Structure formats: structure tokens, C-alpha cells
Simulated assay, not measured.
Amino acid sequence: MSTYKADKPEWVRHAIESVCGQTYKDFIFLIIVDGSVPAATTAMLLDCAKRDSRLIIAQNSQNIGLAASMNLAIDWAVTQPAIKYFFRMDADDACMPERLEKQVDFLDKHQDVHVLGTGLTEVNESDTPVGARVMPASHDIIVRMLPRRCTLNHPTVAIRMNVFHDGFRYDARRLNTQDYFLWIDLAAQGYQFRNLREKLLRFRRVNDFYKRRGLTKSLNEFKARFVAMRKLHRYSVLNTFYALAVLGLRLMPSRIVKWAYKFDRILLEKIIKH
């Protein structure tokens, strides 16, 4: 997990407690502090580390971004032979108590799976559920849909460490959508994906969620869709039209983006059921 100065300390503490309270106990929890943070955040992190020896705090001298911070965590993890899986989450999310246990159990039983995501529950600033996001379960559908959408919920993924031993990393040059590009690269190389339909993470969807999906993110997603079409050999009229239509929608006012987001959830539910 990475945290930076804009993260609310109470949300970060909640995220940490959700990991430390897992039913699965044998893990190392590495938190990258990305640059300077408020004194309250530092005090809270040190207090949490004092209470739980599994917690490791590392701090960047300056803010370098999520992807670069995760790459630092990965570079450290590959030097630890005992680490089998790399789990992701964000500093304002919370894991369900059985998340690690269920994902570890699945990966232990399915040695051919390299990346495992789960469903999630979307919550607002008051922790009230406001939606859900469940992705397709099978590898074939996950990859087939990649030219149209990112088919894994990034904060929910567990990644087998051999993916990183093979040299793959997040693209730190990108300020967002780094996960989407990584999934495309892995799919093109034949790595296997799965999603559990259980909602094992509570994802924080704050009031400015739709506003933050601005031009840079929209253009990166647009580019990712065409990269996916090229690398996965899935050029089609439907995929091209979808990429253009989503870009157009994302550039519209936030209230329209909000409506489109809700409509997309309905479509995704129908795809999963069929």
C-alpha cells in the first residue's frame, strides 16, 4: 500500500486495521509513504507499526507516484524468497477480514493462475455502501474484454511473485491506468487471470470521483484500449467504436459521466450473468 499527503489519516488507519485483522496471519504489510505527509499521519503510522510487527514503513524522500512506489515495493519483495504473492490495496480502502485467506487458498489450489482479483463494494465518505463492482470470473472473458475495459479491480488483486521475477513492473511514466497497461502486457504473454465474484474489498468512492476521471486518465484509457487491440490481436468495429464512445462520454460534464458509470455497472452485471 502507498499513502501520500492528501490521504486522510483516519481512512489510512482503517485500511491498516483491515489488513492487520485478517483471518490469514502469515504476511508482511509494507506501506510506502510517498513523500512528506502530515505529522498526524506519521504518528498514526508509527503507532500502528509499534502495535504490529508485521507492518513495515518505508518513506520516499519525495513524492514519486503510485506506480513508482509499487515498483519499489516489488523490487524489495523479489529479494525475499519466502514471499509467494503480492497483494494490492489503496490507502482509503478496507479489506474484508477473509480477503487474504480466500485469495491465498485459491492461488495455492490453482497454480496456473498468476493474477487474481475479486469483486468490491463501493462506499462513500461515511462508509455507506453506494454500489458494487464484480468483474468476469474466467480468464477467457477477462482477456476478451480487455480492449473495452480494465477487467480487474486493481485494489483487489493478488499477483504471483513469479510475474515480477520474470521482469514485469508497472509503467512508472504513467500517472494513472498503470494497472490496465500491465494486464495487457501480461495477457499478451499468456499469463492467466481470474476474478473471485465475492466482494472482498470496500472501495472508497468520494464525491469528486467522477470529476477526477479527467482528460489525462481518459486519454490514457483510450490509448490502452488500442494497445490491447494491437497486442491481443482484437481489432474490431465494436472495440473501436467502444473506445471512441467512452472517450466522448468521459469528456462530458460530471453528471453525465456519473449516469454513464451507473449504466456501465448494469451492463457489467448482465455480462457476468451470461
Rank of each mutant, 00 (worst) to 15 (best):
N207K: 11
Y4E: 06
D112M: 02
S2K: 14
I271P: 03
H274M: 13
D75C: 09
L66M: 15
L182K: 01
E17F: 08
L72S: 15
P97H: 05
K270E: 10
I266C: 13
V257Q: 08
L247Y: 06
S218Y: 02
N153Y: 09
D7Q: 06
H110L: 02
L219Q: 05
A49I: 01
R225G: 11
M252I: 07
G214W: 07
A158F: 00
L238I: 15
P81I: 00
L268D: 10
D92L: 02
I184L: 06
L182A: 06
C20W: 04
V115M: 05
R13N: 10
L244W: 14
R205Y: 04
Y191C: 00
K223N: 13
R230E: 15
V143Q: 04
L45I: 02
I74K: 01
A91F: 02
D47W: 05
T121K: 07
K262E: 09
I184N: 02
D179A: 05
S18C: 05
N239S: 09
P38M: 01
R173C: 14
R88G: 02
Y170T: 04
R148L: 09
V157Y: 03
R148S: 09
F27P: 00
E198M: 11
A260P: 06
P129W: 08
S36G: 13
P147F: 07
R149Q: 14
Q178S: 13
L215R: 14
T121Y: 10
P9Y: 06
L72R: 14
I16V: 12
A94R: 07
R13A: 10
D52V: 06
A228E: 01
N207R: 12
E125N: 13
R225H: 14
T23D: 06
N176Y: 12
C95E: 05
